[in-house]
Simulated assay, not measured.
Amino acid sequence: MYDLIGIGIGPMNLGLSALAHPTDLKTLFFDESEQFSWHPGMMIQDSMMQTSFISDLVTLADPTSAFSYLNYLRSIQRLHTFYFYEKLLISRQGYNDYLRWVATQLNDLRFSTRVVDVQDTGDSFEVLVEDVTTGKRETFEARNVVIGTGSKPAIPDTFDERVIHNTQYVMNKAELLQRKKISIVGSGQSAAEIFLDLLTTPAPERPELEWIARSTLFETLETGKLGEEIFSPSYVTYFNQLPLEVRQESVKKFARSQNGISPETLQSIYAHLYDLTEEEQQQVAIRANLEVKKITYDERFTIAMQHQELEDERSSKTDAVIAATGFSP
């Protein structure tokens, strides 16, 4: 009998495993992936996290944990280097390295194991799992089950199947650079980072770029200190006591706290656009207020769009499309 079984090993359940490690809790976590992996397709060089290093897996819950980001730096002899660095934000690659460091030290993580079914027996849960390689099945019993299966890439059904989701960007970058024109669809942080990464590619190798966004404004991530209080334990306690309908309406107001673009990314994009020559400016376009209705393919992609305010229909021809269109549960 386990005290806790976790389904999925992403940052949330990895943090739960790390916090449970020094306790007497008997825990087990399953993931169908071969090894721990966190957004490998978005490991863009120099891309930064949007949250402080203090928002690691454990610190805000247990500052004394051996699995903190600071202890990770100490273990790789970079603690003083980070101290001299004097920044709260860390790179996405650095955070991924930290996550993998934590994962290698926990003995309750089982990879290549798919959870097939969970049954509520009344007093406990029966969790049926299957080895991805051999197909062998086992059943485990637990008092509690935590579902941490995250989300999956979401691409509208009206987009041609050849469209690439932003989670596959890094793996396809070399091939994308061979295309004459690349279009990016989306108005969030991922779209901005990919646009910036391609924008900073040396001119002779840089394709023509087009960034299509539905929003009127490229919303900046909310970084005001009072606004960030929605992540505090006291606010979460208050929020969870609200009626469901009120919570659903409240979440809509939090968009900028979750989905905006970091100010540093926007400033960097503007600075690079400013430095473009007149000839290079003709090869870069940012199109706002356009909702993509359909993307078809016939030797080249055709992007059918509608202007959000003028309501007229427009189209664009391109050689590659990257959809930074978010995720679904």
Rank of each mutant, 00 (worst) to 15 (best):
Y2R: 07
G6Y: 00
I7T: 05
I9K: 01
P11N: 06
P11Q: 08
N13H: 11
N13R: 02
N13L: 01
N13C: 02
A20K: 04
T23I: 02
D24G: 10
K26F: 05
L28Y: 09
E34N: 14
P40C: 08
G41R: 06
M42W: 00
S47N: 09
M49W: 12
M49L: 15
Q50M: 09
S52W: 02
S52H: 06
I54V: 13
L57K: 03
T59C: 11
T64I: 09
A66Q: 15
L70P: 03
Y72W: 12
I76A: 02
I76Q: 08
Q77W: 02
F82A: 08
F82W: 04
L88Q: 15
Y95W: 10
R100E: 08
W101N: 08
V102S: 10
A103K: 01
L106S: 06
D108E: 15
D108Q: 10
V118E: 13
T121F: 10
T121G: 13
V129D: 08
V132W: 04
R137Q: 15
E138M: 07
F140V: 00
R143P: 00
V145I: 05
V146T: 05
I147W: 08
T149P: 12
S151Q: 10
P156I: 03
T158D: 04
D160M: 06
Q168F: 07
Q168V: 01
Y169H: 04
K173S: 00
E175M: 13
K180C: 04
I182A: 00
S187M: 04
S187K: 02
A192S: 08
E193D: 12
F195W: 02
L199H: 13
A203I: 13
P204A: 12
W211S: 00
R214G: 15
E219S: 15
L221A: 04
L221K: 04
L221S: 08
L221V: 04
T223Y: 10
T223P: 07
G224S: 13
K225I: 12
E228N: 14
E229V: 04
Y235Q: 10
T237A: 13
N240Y: 10
E245H: 11
R247N: 12
E249Q: 15
S250Y: 14
V251R: 10
K252M: 10
A255R: 15
S257C: 05
Q258F: 10
G260Q: 13
T265E: 01
Q282L: 13
I286D: 09
R287L: 11
T296I: 11
Y297G: 03
T302I: 13
A304L: 11
Q306F: 06
Q306I: 12
E313I: 01
E313K: 12
R314S: 14
S315F: 12
S315M: 10
K317Q: 15
T318D: 12
I322N: 02
A323W: 02
G326E: 11
P329D: 08
